[in-house]
Amino acid sequence: MRYEKPQTVAEAARLLTAEKGLTRILAGGTDVLVQLKAGMVEPELVVDIKALPGLRSIVSEAGGFRIGAAVSGAQLGEDAEVRALWPGVVEATNLIGSTQVQGRATMAGNLCNASPAADSVPALVAAGAVARIAGPGAARDVPVEAIPVGPGKTALKRGEFITSIFLPARPARSGDAYLRFIPRTEMDIAVASAAVSLTLDEGGTITAARVALGAVAPTVRLVEAAAAAIVGTKLEDAAVAKLAAACSAACSPIDDKRGTIEFRTEVAGVLAKRAARIAYTRAGGQA
């Protein structure tokens, strides 16, 4: 294995493209090192992206924020402005692992590791976040939900990597929230999860919503039927019940050591319901 720490994006892309064998990007390393230790991957080349210009910064852009791909969860959590605009995304990212893992783990790494249970991803999808991709060709922007294509698999092409994730501006009276279910209070991988982002009109009626579920399908699910169930409502009990039912219906989970199909399907609905209520309150609605 070779370790490289390039100083420019172009150099990083060149290194990645030139290597014939297996390559790995190293951001926080909290997935990569575990996989190395277990012998799950044996890359020829590891490219550390933490020295690339701008990758460790958070900048305001067009009313939203551009989050560098090497920004750790801890750094993100300390940014009061991002927290104020996208509390659900920040809380989702801050749920990843322990304080120690937060010191290193990145949203981009969480996304590119492509685990169906990745915590930040449902929140990013609900937020309509966009990933900026660098590589041998010109940089391009892609909605985050297009990145993971299956467990452990991404749509990134050879030599490509994410340089930042953009969280857009949002209208007044908007709120988002993320909840996951884990057996303990910390240090578990989500058994099921739900993110909701919504916007209200002045009267408290939901005008737009995005609902995304994690750990209940091979990739994060954006559930349009669930969003439709609450748009035009004030999140009354009947709307919430429809939302939960739509979420459960959208699940196609597996049975494994972490949970059963039955459990995941039911709990995904419960979490969506609870997350919607939090998002609604954050948006200024009177629940």
Partner: peptide, 29 residues
């Protein structure tokens, strides 16, 4: 009582040979 267990798959292999899925209590529990 709540979370710890050896989980074997149908293949007879131990599924949770690590502290991430063999869930001992953490401080916040």
């Amino acid at each position: 009582a709540l979370n710890e267990e050896y989980i074997y798959g149908r293949d007879g292999r131990l599924q949770n040979a690590g502290f991430l899925d063999y869930r001992v209590p953490v401080a916040s529990d």
